[in-house]
Design a protein around this nucleic acid. Structure first.
Lengths: 224, 224
DNA sequence: ACGATTTTGTGAATGATTTCACAAGGTTCG
DNA sequence: CGAACCTTGTGAAATCATTCACAAAATCGT
C-alpha cells in the first residue's frame, strides 16, 4: 500500500460497502468475504479489495473481513465514527425532505441547524429544529463547529449561500442548486442534480442513437 | 466521429451544457464558443467539443455554436424535445420535494402520476396530482406510456416497486432508496444517495489521512 | 482577394480506473 | 504435521476518460 491519493470513486464505494456491512451486521453475520460483498453490492470483489488497500489491510486471508471490525474502520475513514453536524440552508421542500430523512442517523450525520432568509419562515419549527436567520449562520456555527453544509435554495441564491457557508467555516458543501459554485480551493463541493440524472436516463431509456448529423444552425437563428 | 458507445460521463455533462446554454439563451446570447462554455460550466473546452463529437458536428469554426441551435440538438439527443412523462412512486418527503421542484418544467420533464401503497394517502391531492394506488400502476401507465420512473420509498419496499415499474413498461429508474436494485439488463438505474454524497464530503472535509493500518479484528469479535 | 485571426473537430498522448492473475498467508481436517 | 483449500493484497495489464495539439474551416479587415 503506497501513499497515493485516494480516487474519488473509491470514496463513493466506501459508503456503499458501509451500507452492505451494516445490513449484514443487522442480520447477525459476523464475517464477509470480498466475494460475498460483491454479491450484495454489485461491485467487483477485486475492486472492493483494492479500494480498502488504499487505507490499510483489514481482512484475513482464508477468512474474509470481520463485519463489525470493518464497519468501524470504514466509519473512521469517512469520519463517521463521531457525530458529524451539518448546516442546512434552505427551508423549502428539499430541506424538509432532508431533515425528515430517516437514514442519516445510522451514519451519525445530524442536521444541526436550518437557515433561511425568508423572515416569514425564521423562527418557525422545522423538524426538530427552529429555522434560523441566514444572517446569523457564522455566529451559530461558532458554537456548532460544523464542517459540512447543504445548499437547498434556488439557483439564484446558491453562490451567495456558498460564500456564507465558507465564511462560517464549512469545508464540504452538498449543493442541490443547479449552478456551478465558485469556492476556495480547500473547499469541496458535490452537486446533486435530479435534472441531470433524469436527463441521462431519458437518453438511456431509448437506446436508438438516431444521431442527427448536421450543421450548427437549425430552427433558431444562425450563428452571428 | 466513429461509431462508439457514448461514455456516461459525456451524457452527464450534456445536461450541464444544456443548462449553460439555456441560461445564455435567457440572457439573449446568440453564439458561444467552447472556450466560453468552459468559463460558465467549469468543463474543459476540449472536453466539450469531444463530447459533442459523439453525436455530430454542431459548431462553426471561427464562430462557435449557435445557442438556440445547440439547445435543440442536445434536447433531441437527450429526448427532452418532447414532453417526457415520469411515474413517481412514494408520496413522502422526497416525493413532495420532487413534485414541487420548479426546474423540471424547463426540461420538459413532467411527473405524470404519483403512487403510494398507504391507503390513507391514496386519493389525496399531491401537488397538482392525486395519489394513486400502486396496485394500479400498470393500468395507469398503459395510458400515460411513461418510460421513466422515480423510486422514493423506503429501502425495504424499493425492490418490489422496481419490479412493478418494470412491469409497467419503465426502462429508466431514478432510485432514491439506499439499495441495489435488481432489474432486467435493458433497464437503466441511477442511484441518488444523500448519505453517499455526505460521506464523501465528510472524508474530504478533513484531509488528514490518519490511515490506520492494522489487522482485521478490532473492537468487535474476531473473524470466525 | 488575401493574410491575420478565430475556433472547430479529432487523432494521438496522457492520465486514471478497473480488472486480472497470482504469490503469500491463513484455515481445516485427516 | 502436512496437504488441500480459501481468501487476501497487489503488481501488471487492460480498459476507459481526459487533455493536448494541430490541420481544416470560417470570418474579418483592408
Amino acid at each position: 500500500m503506497t501513499e497515493t491519493r485516494v480516487p474519488i470513486p473509491t470514496l463513493e464505494r466506501l459508503a456503499i460497502y458501509l451500507r452492505v456491512l451494516l445490513d449484514a451486521h443487522e442480520a447477525g453475520i459476523q464475517t464477509l468475504s470480498s466475494q460475498e460483498v460483491e454479491q450484495h453490492s454489485g461491485i467487483n470483489a477485486a475492486q472492493f479489495r483494492k479500494d480498502l488497500s488504499y487505507f490499510g489491510e483489514f481482512g484475513k486471508p482464508g477468512v474474509g473481513y470481520s463485519v463489525a471490525g470493518l464497519i468501524q474502520c470504514i466509519e473512521r475513514i469517512l469520519r463517521l465514527d463521531a457525530e458529524q453536524p451539518i448546516l442546512l440552508v434552505g427551508a423549502g421542500n428539499i430541506g424538509a425532505a432532508l431533515v425528515g430523512y430517516p437514514n442519516f442517523q445510522a451514519h451519525r450525520l445530524r442536521i444541526a441547524a436550518v437557515f433561511d432568509n425568508n423572515f416569514v419562515k425564521i423562527g418557525r419549527p422545522f423538524g426538530d429544529l427552529v429555522i434560523e436567520d441566514i444572517a446569523r449562520i457564522r455566529e451559530i456555527n461558532a458554537t456548532i463547529g460544523a464542517r459540512l453544509g447543504i445548499i437547498a435554495v434556488p439557483a439564484s441564491a446558491a453562490q451567495e449561500v456558498a460564500d456564507l457557508l465558507v465564511e462560517a467555516g464549512v469545508t464540504g458543501i452538498l449543493n442541490f442548486a443547479p449552478t456551478i459554485l465558485r469556492v476556495p480551493p480547500y473547499v469541496h463541493v458535490r452537486n446533486v442534480s435530479f435534472l441531470q440524472e433524469l436527463a441521462v436516463l431519458s437518453y438511456q431509456a431509448v437506446e436508438e442513437s438516431l444521431c442527427m448529423n448536421g450543421q450548427a444552425s437549425r430552427g433558431g437563428e444562425d450563428a452571428v
